[in-house]
Design a protein around this nucleic acid. Structure first.
Length: 747
DNA sequence: GACCTGCTGCGGGGTG
């Protein structure tokens, strides 16, 4: 080795940590001309090299988390012989795995360490190579890990028997959804296959999250208190913020093929183009339709004004080729703006971005934080965020909730909460019988059959489905036998029935999340992406940042053929939204009823806030109940999506007409009658099951999971009761009701 | 009113 440690100026704090690394890893860092280890990396190296147990590294994007984990991991497994994968890396995206594969391979330059990747785009021959000679590091998606359990069950033990580390990247993206539950189940099943599961350490890499206790429970449910956390909260980059307000009369949808563009919409798009000009930018919007529409409008303004910047699109309904094209253009570093959904929120490297735009408020503070983190990644640069908020033009005769400009108020609320360094704590999913069903099928197929008590032990006692009682589990098994998903053999073993076998054979089996079938949009044999519903033949269409005309619709093959055209029409996508946390709505109350000034608002936003506040004042919004005329009363709930939905189902049950108005529930009854209803509500004790039945009957608001259609009503209700929040809903009403009694004055 | 994520086995045909 020609270099000596003297050539390095790795700072003192890092020297000791550096000395803990394997000589070949050290040598690679010299090659790469690293001059220092970041504090986060020093901590992680010490922890992984010198201690035992699980670990969570929580830090902003681009803080060097991957190296923090893999420098010491590679050092520890460097001299282990082949014969088993030593470190399993699970990532949520194929693109992320490709990125990380290159980075980890790079670190292994001087090591005799194989690095394997396994996901849907990896060739069968590469997969065969791993199966033939397992060793080193394996990077994989949860779905591909599932495919190993289903299709390579005999190779499982051989592959993983000597496993030492499990790394879960972007851990925050797994905490509160079915996919994360799926992954937990797979990892728990993996441990049950290997000889010394206790010696496997789990390391989670996460963006900064609100509540680390959920993440520690995710990583080690038995001993969450033993999970060490490295929380790198230091945000050295400064943030520049601006909220721009716009206000116009929105047109009804579904007009002709060339809708006119209102002046204020034009002003908004021109502002976006001005702010973006000559730089690299990401503009996030809340819907794919918005993205297509705005990208088209900005591109045409750019052309008219002779601006050479590119305006691109990126969202989940576009083909991989188009998305990769956008990513590549962004990476080039030439002036370009990508209009995108949360597809560009996570850690894929798209180079340096100078400005982040957000059209309308984001649904969560956590997501806003992630988005801002994508800008100002060069040393010394600040993060720049511009929010563009579109509001309805209103007159005093309009609906109260339109006059409150809730979009703007929500934008200020998430901004304020972000400045307070708060973010939504995740909630682990409860009573997810759909994902449990998928795991039952998977386990039975892996083992070629299983007894009921064995299934229960593996999935519900050792695995993550602990919140499901023995009784409900038995009911579920009976139901699955009834539906022919499972069959019981005379000796008592459960095997797959006809339906179970066909579900398992379907290539969609490996994912636990819902994916409805959609139309492919095709131009000259190339698939541009997908649409959930087909426009009529001859209609115009904005798609993938270009204008098209539909020339053929094939409902059998689900194909939509298009040719370039001039007119335009916003495309329709289907989707269900997320949940808004109650703290955001509480903050909105504070903003609407207070008089605090916000320096980051532009003039238009400031005057919209003023008019919202005066509407709030005139309508006595601080009161818990507001009369909206002879037949309508608003109950001011100021709470999150889940409690709102629970309250609506309570009113449905009481046969009272109720509508969710974000910050309130509007009752179809006069004030006095509503007061009586609330009195009744406070005195009644509700059975959650009854409410869940009510919600199921109305078919609205409740989450729909992939295999819910296999459940009978009783099991559906059981899984819904885990989602409803009756206690908090009643508390919300109690407080409002008590408040009224205390103040003794109605509006 | 609204995001995102993932995917195997097998048979047919072509090439060296």
């Amino acid at each position: 080795m020609s270099e000596s440690t003297n050539d390095l100026s790795i700072k003192d704090s890092g020297t000791a940590a550096f000395s803990l690394l394997h000589p070949s890893v050290q040598r690679r860092l010299w090659d790469m001309k690293w001059t220092e280890l970041r504090p986060l990396q020093v901590q992680a190296i010490n922890r992984i090299s010198l201690a035992s147990g699980d670990l969570i590294i929580s830090a902003a994007t681009a803080s060097g988390k991957t190296e923090a984990a893999f420098l010491p991991i590679l050092s520890k497994i460097a001299d282990e012989p082949l014969g088993s994968v030593r470190s399993l890396y699970v990532g949520p995206l194929k693109a992320l795995i490709n990125d990380q594969f290159a980075r980890i391979n790079d670190l292994c330059h001087h090591l005799e360490m194989p690095v394997h990747d396994w996901h849907g785009d990896v060739s069968a021959s590469r997969k065969a190579k791993l199966l033939e000679c397992p060793g080193g590091v394996l990077l994989i998606t949860p779905e591909s890990l599932e495919s190993i359990f289903v299709n390579r069950s005999t190779a499982l033990r051989n592959l993983f028997n000597g496993l030492r580390f499990i790394v879960i990247d972007e851990l925050h993206s797994f905490l509160d959804n079915e996919r994360g539950l799926h992954l937990r189940s797979l990892l728990s099943r993996l441990r049950s296959v290997i000889e010394q599961p206790a010696s496997v350490r789990t390391i989670g890499l996460s963006a900064t999250i609100g509540d680390l206790s959920i993440a520690t429970r995710y990583v080690n449910e038995d001993q969450p208190q033993d999970v060490h956390t490295i929380d790198d909260k230091i945000e050295t980059r400064s943030t520049k913020l601006r909220i721009h307000g716009y206000c116009w009369e929105f047109e009804e949808e579904d007009k002709d093929d060339n809708p006119s563009v209102p002046d204020e919409l034009m002003r908004f798009a021109q502002d976006v183009v001005q702010h973006c000009k000559g730089k690299s930018n990401l503009i996030f919007a809340n819907s794919k339709g918005d993205i297509e529409e705005l990208a088209d409008l900005c591109a045409s303004i750019g052309r008219d004004e002779g601006i050479n910047d590119r305006f691109l699109v990126h969202h989940g309904s576009l083909s991989a080729a188009i998305r990769e094209d956008t990513e590549a253009t962004m990476k080039e570093g030439k002036p370009a703006t990508a209009f995108c959904t949360s597809t560009l929120e996570m850690g894929i490297d798209i180079g340096s971005v100078s400005m982040i735009g957000q059209v309308d408020p984001p649904w969560s503070v956590a997501s806003l934080k992630q988005r801002i983190g994508r800008s100002g990644r060069r040393k010394g640069e600040s993060q720049i965020l511009r929010m563009y908020i579109r509001c309805h033009q209103t007159t005093p005769q309009d609906d109260l909730f339109d006059r409150l400009h809730l979009q703007l108020i929500q934008a200020i609320a998430v901004t304020e909460l972000m400045l307070e360094r708060w973010a939504e704590p995740a909630r682990l999913p409860v009573c997810d019988l759909s994902t449990l069903t998928q795991q039952i099928i998977s386990y039975i197929f892996q083992r070629g059959g299983a007894r009921a008590d064995e299934l229960h032990r593996v999935l519900c006692v050792a695995g993550p489905f602990r919140d499901i009682s023995t009784n409900v589990f038995a009911q579920l098994l009976r139901q699955l036998v009834e539906k022919d998903v499972l069959e019981q053999e005379p000796e008592g073993d459960l095997i797959l029935g006809l339906l179970g076998e066909s579900l398992r054979k379907n290539k969609g089996f490996y994912a636990v999340f819902n994916t409805p079938s959609e139309y492919s949009v095709i131009y000259e044999g190339t698939i541009l992406g997908t649409l959930s519903s087909a426009p009529e033949k001859g209609e115009r269409l904005l798609f993938a940042g270009r204008r098209w005309q539909v020339i053929d619709v094939d409902p059998e093959k689900l194909e939509l053929h298009v040719i370039p055209a001039h007119g335009w029409k916003r495309p329709k996508f289907s989707g269900s939204g997320g949940e808004i946390h109650e703290k955001i709505r509480k903050k909105m109350r504070e903003i609407l009823l207070g008089d605090k000034k916000f320096i980051y608002l532009d003039d238009a936003a400031t005057s919209l806030l003023e008019s919202a506040r005066s509407a709030a004042d005139i309508s006595h919004l601080s009161q818990p109940l507001i009369s909206l005329g002879p037949r309508k009363t608003a109950i001011m709930t100021w709470t999150g999506t889940r409690i709102q939905q629970t309250l609506v189902s309570i009113f449905d049950y009481l046969k009272v007409e109720a509508t969710d108005k974000q910050i309130a529930i509007v009752i179809g009854a006069p004030l006095e009658k509503t007061r009586a209803t609330l009195q009744q509500l406070c005195e009644t004790s509700f059975n959650e099951k009854v409410l869940a039945y009510e919600m199921l009957k109305n078919g609205s608001g409740a989450p729909r999971r992939k295999y819910d259609w296999l459940l009978n009503p009783e099991l559906r209700v059981t899984s819904l009761t885990g989602w409803l929040d009756v206690q908090s809903a009643k508390k919300n009403i109690f407080e409002a009701h008590d408040d009224k009694e205390c103040t003794g004055s109605g509006p």
